[in-house]
Simulated scan of single mutants.
Amino acid sequence: MLYKAKKGQASYGEAIGILLLDISFVPFIPGDVANATTYHFPVRFKKVDGLTVEKIFNKDMSLLNRVIKAGKELVEEGVRAITGDCGFMILFQEEMARLLNVPVFLSSLLQLPFLIKIIGGGSKVGIITANSKILDNNLLREVGIYNTDSIYIKGLEDKENFRNGILRECGWLDSKKIEDEVVGIAKEMVEDEPKIKIILLECSSLPPYGQSVQEAVNLPVFDFITMINYVYSSLVKKRYEGIM
Rank of each mutant, 00 (worst) to 15 (best):
E179Y: 03
D223E: 02
A216L: 08
F88N: 01
N161Q: 14
L74C: 07
K195E: 15
L2W: 09
R168G: 12
P194H: 12
L200I: 12
M227Q: 14
F57Y: 12
N138R: 15
K195L: 06
Q214A: 10
A97P: 02
P207A: 10
D49S: 15
G144Q: 14
F45W: 04
I23C: 03
R141E: 13
L156Y: 06
D136M: 03
K159W: 11
K4N: 13
I116H: 05
K4T: 12
I16C: 03
S175Y: 13
L173I: 10
I16S: 04
E160Q: 10
G13V: 13
S108L: 02
S108C: 01
K159Y: 15
L64Q: 13
G8N: 13
K46F: 10
K154D: 15
P42C: 05
M96N: 05
D223V: 02
M244V: 06
L156D: 02
P207Y: 08
K238G: 08
M96F: 05
M189R: 08
N65W: 14
W172S: 15
V221W: 00
Y232F: 06
A34Q: 07
I151V: 05
S233M: 05
E193D: 15
D192N: 14
I82G: 07
S132F: 01
T38S: 08
E95N: 11
T83H: 09
D49N: 14
G126S: 02
A10C: 07
N164K: 15
I128T: 03
I228L: 04
E181D: 14
V213T: 03
K4I: 14
Y232P: 02
S11R: 12
N58E: 15
P42F: 04
P42S: 05
G13C: 13
G120I: 12
Y152T: 15
E193L: 09
L115R: 01
P194N: 08
V33T: 13
T37D: 13
Y146I: 00
I23L: 06
N229C: 05
V236Y: 01
N131I: 00
L64S: 08
G87Y: 00
Y12N: 02
K124N: 08
V143I: 13
N161G: 09
K46H: 11
F224M: 07
V75F: 08
K59P: 07
S108P: 03
I68D: 09
W172M: 11
R163A: 04
Q211V: 08
Q214F: 05
F41Q: 07
L99S: 04
T148R: 09
D136Y: 02
L20I: 05
V102H: 06
I153K: 06
I178Y: 07
V43G: 06
T38K: 01
L201K: 00
I228K: 01
S108R: 00
D85E: 14
G120R: 09
K46W: 03
A10S: 08
D60R: 00
F88M: 00
D223H: 03
V221P: 00
C203L: 10
M1I: 12
I145P: 02
D149V: 14
N137S: 11
Y39M: 11
E160W: 11
N229L: 09
V102I: 11
Y230N: 09
V75S: 10
K72Q: 15
Y12G: 02
E241W: 07
I199Y: 02
R168P: 08
K195A: 13
L99Y: 03
E73V: 14
